[in-house]
Design a protein around this nucleic acid. Structure first.
Length: 274
DNA sequence: CATTACCTGCAA
DNA sequence: TTGCAGGTAATG
């Protein structure tokens, strides 16, 4: 489900609720939701920890804990992190329940069971992040790193941008939207880009993500923030899932093809293949 | 590169 | 019944 803007929305909603809270008990209802360590050890090490902060790296949400531990959560397609007050009604597809002192809960629910939780020490975190590219919303360093990677990589832009090693946090929605904003065809090959086009792509990625965060994320099918609210960015999508509808810039019908196995939406006129 | 596997639910 | 869905690791 969520890409960078959705994870960032969850982070912002969740942080004030869980900051400083101590974990009283943990219940794992679907063991494979725990990537590492094995579920019994996961429960033992997480119980008694206090949450000191909430961060994000790419699509990973990071709950910082005392004892130098971090609970990293990747929601994949349908995962949700829901903060629920004590005694709240059950949620469907509950996989992991984290109960705080006082009875409030953080619930990990996941219809398709692709999402994963990782309880890691600092070196484990380094390993997890080793293959992540730059943070698109970070300042100058991220820009240079991204432009450098684009200069050396070859092949179609769409699979390149879906690869988290190129830039961290993009998924299908925001790759489609970013390429439209940049006026670049999804099958355009990276090695044919001009420096001006590379810069345009970088700027388009940032504008697309920042707008989506400002709208609280995109709720097409299943995304909910930590407090259970939907995002509004689905009302602002320019091309994603809009096949046959007029391009917002020129009126040409939006096309749909499959690239990298994913539905790919673009304007044939605004995003020509040279 | 593309395809498959991991899973479930919904719409066509 | 088939195809599709916002992800990614493994495989060809």
């Amino acid at each position: 489900m969520p890409e960078l803007p959705e994870v960032e929305t969850i982070r912002r909603d969740l942080a004030p609720q869980v900051q400083g809270r101590r974990v009283a008990s943990v219940e794992v209802l679907w063991e494979r939701s725990i990537a590492v360590p094995p579920a019994p050890e996961f429960v033992g090490r997480l119980t008694g920890r206090t949450i000191t902060g909430v961060d994000r790296r790419g699509k990973f949400l990071l709950l910082r804990l005392d004892q130098n531990e971090t609970l990293a959560v990747h929601l994949r397609m349908t995962g949700r992190l829901l903060y629920r007050p004590a005694g709240a009604a059950p949620d469907p597809h509950l996989r992991v329940r984290i109960v705080f002192e006082g009875g409030d809960e953080l619930r990990f629910t996941d219809q398709r069971k692709f999402g994963r939780l990782y309880l890691l020490d600092p070196s484990g975190l380094d390993t997890l992040f080793a293959r992540l590219g730059p943070e698109p919303l970070d300042a100058a360093a991220g820009r240079e790193q991204f432009l450098a990677l684009l200069r050396q990589r070859r092949g179609a832009l769409k699979p390149l941008l879906l690869n988290q090693a190129t830039i961290a946090g993009l998924g299908n929605i925001y790759v489609n939207e970013s390429l439209f904003r940049a006026g670049l065809h999804p099958l355009r090959r990276a090695e044919t880009l001009t420096e001006e086009e590379r810069a345009r792509l970088y700027n388009a990625v940032r504008e697309t993500l920042q707008a989506a965060i400002a709208h609280g994320g995109t709720s097409i099918a299943t995304f909910l923030s930590a407090l259970g609210s939907s995002g509004r960015n689905q009302d602002y999508l320019l091309v994603h899932q809009r096949a046959g509808q007029p391009c917002p810039r020129c009126g040409t019908p939006i096309a749909r093809i499959v690239v990298a196995g994913r539905g790919t939406f673009f304007c044939p006129r605004c995003q020509p293949l040279p």
